[in-house]
Design a protein around this nucleic acid. Sequence first.
DNA 1: ACATCCTGCTTACGCGAGTAACCGGCACGT
DNA 2: ACGTGCCGGTTACTCGCGTAAGCAGGATGT
Lengths: 382, 382
Amino acid sequence: MSQSPKPQRPTDPAKAAPSPKPSAPSARSSEPSRRSSEPSPRSSEPSPRSPEAPPPPVPTSADVARLAGVSRATVSYVLNNAAAVRISEPTRRKVREAAEELGYVPHAAARTLRAGHTRIVLLPTSHVPAGPLYSAFLDDLQWALRRLDYTVVQYGSLGLSGDQAARAWAELRPVAVISLGEIVLSARNVATLERAGAKAVITLGPVGVPGAHALVLDQGEVGAAAALHLVERGHRRIGVVVPEEPGLELFSAPRLAGARSVAGAEVEPVPLARTEESAGRLARRWRSLGLDAVYAYNDEYAMLLMRAFQDEGLRIPGDVAVIGADDLLLGRLLRPRLSTVRIQMPTGDYLAALVDRAVREGAEPAERHGLMAASAIPREST
Amino acid sequence: MSQSPKPQRPTDPAKAAPSPKPSAPSARSSEPSRRSSEPSPRSSEPSPRSPEAPPPPVPTSADVARLAGVSRATVSYVLNNAAAVRISEPTRRKVREAAEELGYVPHAAARTLRAGHTRIVLLPTSHVPAGPLYSAFLDDLQWALRRLDYTVVQYGSLGLSGDQAARAWAELRPVAVISLGEIVLSARNVATLERAGAKAVITLGPVGVPGAHALVLDQGEVGAAAALHLVERGHRRIGVVVPEEPGLELFSAPRLAGARSVAGAEVEPVPLARTEESAGRLARRWRSLGLDAVYAYNDEYAMLLMRAFQDEGLRIPGDVAVIGADDLLLGRLLRPRLSTVRIQMPTGDYLAALVDRAVREGAEPAERHGLMAASAIPREST
DNA sequence: ACATCCTGCTTACGCGAGTAACCGGCACGT
DNA sequence: ACGTGCCGGTTACTCGCGTAAGCAGGATGT
C-alpha cells in the first residue's frame, strides 16, 4: 500500500505458509509520495482550504477499511453488495458509514484495470450538430444505453485524423463505439478498436465501413422522396440544392443521386451557400435556369431560398415549387408553409439493443440497409 | 504478470542480488485468465475472426517488450520519449516497430492509475441542446482545451440527481468539471468532486454555486436589453414570454426580471408553449391584454408568435412590436425581419484558460459576473 | 473427544504502466 | 592494476481495486 508508518498489524511471523513468502516489500520509496498520514478521521466538514496546503489525498478503499477497522476486502465486498460472501450486518453498516464519512468514491480507472474491461460506449463527436432531429436521437440513445447499464462518453475528436482518433478512442478501451458519421473510419481503424477490446464498432452514415456494424442510412431516399413528390405535382425540371459548405458532400451527393433516380424528373444540381447573399444571387438568375421546382437539401436552405425567391418576385408554388427536408417547426410558420421531407432514423432503443447484442453475443458485423425512411409532407410551397 | 507458459528468459539464477528476492509469484491463478498464448507475432492483417474463437488478448507493453527483446521499462521510456534516459537509436527503433506491428495502444486506465491523476475535463450534458450559439461555443471550448492537452469527455448525465451525477463524475477523477448549467450542483457536490481530485469545478449558469468557480451568466441582461430597446421605440406595455416547457425557468425567470428592471416599462409575463396551437390561442386573446409589444424569450418563440399574430390580423410592428433573442439566421428571413437580442457568451478560449489556470495554480474559486453581454439588433419587427 | 461444517472475516495476488534505483561493461585517467 | 564515469539498459515497486483461497473460532454431529 504505502511506505508510511502504517499500523502493520503484528502478524504471527511463523505462520503456516505453504510457499516461501518473505513478503518484505522493503519499504522502498517511489515518487508519488502521497498518503503522508491518516486522512484525518475526524473533521467531516470540508476545511476552508488553507492557502498553499497540499491537496488532501483522495480517500481510497484502504482508508475506508482503516476507519471501519476491517480489511480492504471486506470494504470491497460490502460496497459492491457481494451476495456470495457473508458479512454480518453490523460490519456492513460500519463500512458504509466509514465510506460515507470519508466521502469515498471508487476509482474508475482502478476498477477498469482490475476488471479487464469497461462498459463505456464511446460516442465520438467532432462538431456538435444542431438539428433537433439529431438532438432528440442522441438523447434517446443515451437513455437507452444507460438503462442497459452502459456508460456513455462523448469524446470530442475535433480535427483528428481517422488514425489519431481511433488510437485515442482505443486508449479508453470502450466496449463499443458508435460513430455517427462525422468522422470517417477506415477498416484499419475498426481493427485498432477491436484489438483494443471493443466488441462492437457501429457506424451510422451514408456509406458502410468494412469490419464494422454499418447502419447505412441511404440519404438517397430523401432526395427520391422529394423528387417524387414534385413529379407527382406535375413538375419536371427540378433543381437540387447542393450546399457549398464543406463536410456535407456525404449527405448531399446521395440525396442528389436519389432525386436523379426518380423517373420523369430532369434534375439539375444547384450550388448554394447558407447565406442570404448566396440565395439572392441564385434567385436573381433563377429564371434563366428554366426550372420549375427546387428541392433545397433541407429546410434551412429552403427557407433561405424561399425568401430570396419572394424578394425577386417569384411566386411560390406558382412560378417555382420549393421543398426542404427535416420538418423543422419554423418551416410551418412561413407563408406559404414549407413542404418538407420527414426523415425517420433508427431509434435510440434500436441502436442500444444492437450494441447490447453485439457486446454479449459477439454478433457478426454486417451492413444493414433500409433503416432510413423518408416521406414527403406536402404543405403550401409545392 | 501471468501464469501462462511465457518464455521466462533463462536469467542467471546466481545473480548478484543484494536483497533477498525469491520473486516466485507462486503462479497462483486468478480469474481473468487471459493471455493464453503469444499474441501471434506474425499475421498483421486482421484475421477473419473465426466464429466462437475467444477474442485475441489486447496487446500490452509487456507484449511489445517481448517482441522487441527488451524490458518493459525500456518500452515505456521509448514510447513516452523520455529524454532523461539514454536509449540507443537502434533499440528505440526496435521498440517502435514492435509496437506498430502489434498495434499496441496504451491502456488509459492503467496510466491514470499509475499517474495518480488524469487530464480529463468533464463536460456533463443532460440533454443535447440545439442552439447554434451553444453549439459553436462547445466546439470552441473543445478546441481550446485540446490545444492545452486536456481530454474532453462529455458525460451524459440524463436523469441523474445532483448527488448521483457528482458521484458518477468523481469516479472518472477528472481534473476539472465544467457544468453548463443543465444540472444544478450543490456545494456538497462540488466538495465530492474536489475530494476526488478535481482541481477546478466550473459552473456556467444563471446562479452561482458556492465553492465552485462560478461564471454567473446574468440572463437578466438579455431581458433588459430587449425591454430597453422596446422602450426606446416608444413602447410601454410589454409582454414577456415565459416558456411553458420545463427546465427553462432558470433562464426565463431572470430574463423576465431583467425586463422588469427597465425604467419606463410595464411588464406582463405571458406563458407560451412552443407549439402553433399555443401561439394561436395567445394571439386570439392578445387584444384583450392591452399590450403594445412583446419580448418573446428567444427567436423561436418569437417566430411562432409572429406568425400567429399575422394570422390574427395584427400588424407588426404597428399593432405589436416583437423582439426575440439569439439572432438566428432564420429570423432574418421573415417578413418583417425579426428584431433580436444578440448574446455574447464567454469564449471557449477564455474558459479553457480559466481551467488551465485553476489546474496549475489552484486559483481560488470565485464568482465572476458580467461575462454576458446582450445587445439588441433592430430589424423590422420593432 | 474429535471430526465436520458453517460463519465471518483476512491474506495474497494481479490487472498495465511509469519511474527511481541499481548494475554490468567499456573507456579513460592515474 | 584499479578506481571513476558514462552508457544502455534492467529490476523492483507502486497506483486502487476485485476476488479466490485460506483460516480462526464457534456450533453441531457422532
